[in-house]
Computed example of a mutant assay.
Amino acid sequence: MARILLAPGFWLGAWAWDRVAAELRSRGDEVEALTLPGQDPEDPQRLTATLETQARAIVEHASASADAVVLVVHSGAAASGYMATDLAPERFSRVIYADTAPMPDGFVLNPALGEAVEFPLADTWEEVEAAGNSLAGLDEAMLARFRERAVPVPAGVAGQPVRLSDSPARLKIPTTVICCSFPSSLIAQFRDAEEVPALVQELRLLDAEYVDLPTGHWPMWSKPLELAELIHEAAGR
């Protein structure tokens, strides 16, 4: 049995992991899905959330267990998740990136945010896909639930840079990358290129394993059973 923390990406709360969490529990894992600071619509202080407050919240949940935990991050949660592993690397036995990657120091998730105080879900699904987020595998009911429950991301999360220390400890944490909208072969090409894109710079430093799960950017909805199985298998290694 593994203790697993599930952190959802932009606009999402713990609810996004419902089916995956249930599947993992059925396999004997202890699972906690997180609503990161800034993503609770009932929190009157949510717009004060930053990447650091999210990272510290992840560390706090990880520290509730006597043993190190497996952290699963999706999409934008990779920024605060990776910062959490830098703050307290001893609290994590493995990090699993679901259709995302660890982000380097100074990386800003939405550098075009400007003076806006939050970053909402785009008005149309065409805009979402144009931004590089595949909707493959999502039906109308899933999209409707997504739209209904989406919470804008505070500027302190979406528009501020990732901050990491010089400590190499986070690089020693076993890492799994579950490749969904981009296959592992393409990520390998980016990783080995002469000019490496920012989103794969840290992967060059990690001894990571890569697993393919062909689907869209939200595998917790499009392929929840398959994603749960991959997480369970990786958590057990």
Rank of each mutant, 00 (worst) to 15 (best):
Glu127Trp: 10
Thr35Met: 09
Glu52Tyr: 06
Ala188Asp: 10
Ala57Gln: 13
Leu227Lys: 08
His217Ile: 07
Val108Gly: 04
Phe146His: 15
Pro161Thr: 00
Arg191Tyr: 04
Leu230Cys: 02
Ser63Leu: 13
Ala228Asn: 03
Ser222Met: 00
Leu230Arg: 15
Tyr82Arg: 09
Gly76Tyr: 12
Thr124Gln: 09
Val177Glu: 05
Val59Asp: 08
Leu205Val: 11
Phe146Tyr: 12
Leu121Ser: 10
Gly132Glu: 05
Asp29Leu: 12
Leu34Asp: 09
Glu90Ser: 12
Leu171Cys: 03
Pro41Asp: 11
Ser222Glu: 03
Lys223Pro: 00
Ala193Ile: 02
Leu164Met: 04
Ala141Ser: 14
His61Lys: 15
Ala14Trp: 04
Val153Trp: 00
Ser181Glu: 13
Asp139Ile: 01
Ser80His: 04
Ala112Lys: 14
Ile187Asp: 06
Met83Cys: 10
Glu129Tyr: 02
Phe92Trp: 05
Gly81Asp: 03
Ala62Leu: 08
Ile58Gln: 01
Tyr82Trp: 15
Met220Thr: 02
Ala136Met: 12
Gln39Lys: 05
Gly13Tyr: 06
Pro120Cys: 00
Leu113Tyr: 08
Ala228Gln: 08
Gln201Phe: 04
Gly114Arg: 11
Thr176Arg: 15
Glu126Met: 10
Glu52Ala: 11
Ala158Asn: 01
Leu47Ala: 01
Ala98Cys: 07
Glu202Gly: 03
Arg46His: 07
Pro168Thr: 06
Glu233Pro: 08
Pro120Phe: 02
Ala122Arg: 08
Ala7Thr: 01
Leu12Asp: 07
Asp207Glu: 14
Ala158Pro: 14
Leu230Thr: 06
Leu47Ile: 07
Leu203Trp: 06
Arg19Gln: 14
Leu6Met: 00
Ala21Asn: 08
Ala188Met: 04
Ala7Asn: 05
